[in-house]
Amino acid sequence: MSNFSCHFLIAMLLLLGPLPAAPQAPAVGSLEVSGRVKIDGKQEKLSRKRFYLLRGGLNENKELVARLKAVEITSRDCFYSQMNASSEFICWLKAENCDSPYCRDATAEEVELVPEFLTAYKKGLKQFRGRTAVAQDWLTTNLPPNLVSGYYRQRRALTDNLLSDIRPLQSSMTDSVTVKAIFIDIPVSADGTNPKTSGTFLVSNILPIEFGNKSYVWACEVEIGTSKPASLRLQVPENNKPVKNCEVAVRDLPVCKTGSCPPK
């Protein structure tokens, strides 16, 4: 390198001044939510349930909590009844506790038995040049959209409505083995720079969970620190005693006439 280049680079470095300090990594914590819940005296598992993490406690999120406590949900049976689904279709869903036809394969016998499936199958046979395997395995592509994903879309819309303009920090699902939802890398302070070592957060499933003839919504306040993982075990109020640091809404599910289903 020529002398000129060296001098030029040194001059530029001097002009630029000292290097800015490296940004400090935000203080983070983690949380473990246990989905093992005692309901009516029996230990139940809330596996595959989504929980949301929001900044602030019950007080800071009181409007959301009020919405959660007041929410009316359309049960699965009611939704499909409103969609004029046949009783055979509703019973097929109920047989394996399915929310939608994406749940499982419909067998050849079931295709014959459920009117919606038979119509879709016949359409598929025509469209897929008589390929029976494709017509059967791709049954959902020829079912009316409302019967395929309408229930999911309705629940998605309800979640969006309840959250309104609130953006949860994270969401996580309980797994089926440990039945835990894990939240990691939670910035304990809002701006990421405050040297706080803990913060208050709200954990909620937002969307009521249907179980038996009831629906359940939890909104629980939890303190998350940087020194050790926080944990939360969900509880249902017993004998009308409130759950500490939690608002739990337990509501009866609306009943819709769906006809009787044959025993499994």
Binding site: E44, Y102, F211
Partner: peptide
């Protein structure tokens, strides 16, 4: 075939 189903709150 993919089967996307209810995240079932089934007694297990």
């Amino acid at each position: 075939v993919a089967h996307f189903v209810r995240a079932g709150f089934k007694a297990a």
